[in-house]
Amino acid sequence: MMDIVSWENIYELTQSYRALGPIIGVLLPFLEAFLPFLPLFAFVIANATAYGFWVGFLLSWAGTVAGSYAVFLIVRKFGQARFLHFMTRHKRVQKLIHWVEQHGFGPLFLIICFPFTPSALVNVVAGLANIRRYYYLVTLMAGKFVMVFIVTFVGHDIRALFTQPIRTAIVVLLIALLYVGGKVLENRMNKKAEAEFRRIREEQRRGQQ
C-alpha cells in the first residue's frame, strides 16, 4: 500500500512538473551549470519521467550543454578580469589548466561522462585553458550525451523502481558505480596534474640556477 501511495504521489509531482512546459525542462539543467549545488541527476530523471525517454533526454541534454558552454564562454571572456582573477591563482586550478592543455579531449570527455564529477570546475578550467571554443563545444556535446543518456535510462521508469525490486537493486548499484568511478577518475586526474605541475616547476627551478 505504501508503494502505491508513494508512486501516486510521485506521479502527481511529475504531472505538475510537466504542466510547467518543456522550457522548465531545459532551464533547470541550464541553471545547474551556474549553480552546481543544484541536483542535475534529479532534473534529468524528472525530465525523463515527465516527458518520456527521448524528449526528456533531449531537454536535459540541451539544457546542460547550453549551460556548461555558457559558463565556459563567460570564463573565457572575463577569466582574466580582477573579479575572477582569484580562480587563476588557485593551485588546483593551475594544475588542472595545465593538464587539460596537455592532454585535451580524452580526460575532458571522460570526466564529463560521469554524472557525479565536478563539471562546474571542468567548465571553469576549460574556459581558462587554451582550448578552442568549437573544440570544447564538441567535447561537451559528446560527454554530456553519454552522461545524460545513462541517467535518463536509469530514471525514465520511476514506477518500475517501486514494483520491480531487482531492477531497483540494479539501478542503485549502477548509481553507486557511477559515483565511485567518477571520484576515482577525478582523483587520478588530480594526481597526474599535480605530478605534471611539480615536474614543470622543478624544470623551471633548475633552469633558473
Rank of each mutant, 00 (worst) to 15 (best):
V26K: 00
L27A: 13
F30Q: 04
L31N: 10
L31A: 04
E32K: 00
E32I: 03
A33K: 01
L35R: 00
L35T: 12
P36C: 09
L40N: 09
F43M: 12
V44C: 12
V44E: 11
I45Y: 03
A46G: 02
A48L: 04
T49Q: 15
A50G: 13
A50Y: 08
A50P: 08
A50I: 12
Y51L: 12
V55I: 14
F57T: 09
S60T: 04
A62I: 06
G63F: 02
T64V: 12
V65G: 05
S68Y: 03
S68R: 01
Y69D: 00
A70G: 04
F72N: 04
L73M: 15
L73F: 05
I74D: 06
V75P: 01
V75C: 01
R76T: 06
G79N: 13
G79A: 05
Q80A: 09
A81H: 14
L84I: 12
H85K: 12
F86Q: 07
M87N: 09
T88Q: 15
K91P: 14
R92M: 09
Q94T: 09
K95L: 11
K95S: 15
K95T: 14
L96V: 11
I97S: 09
I97E: 13
H98C: 07
H98I: 13
W99G: 08
E101A: 05
G104S: 07
G106A: 14
P107I: 05
L110N: 05
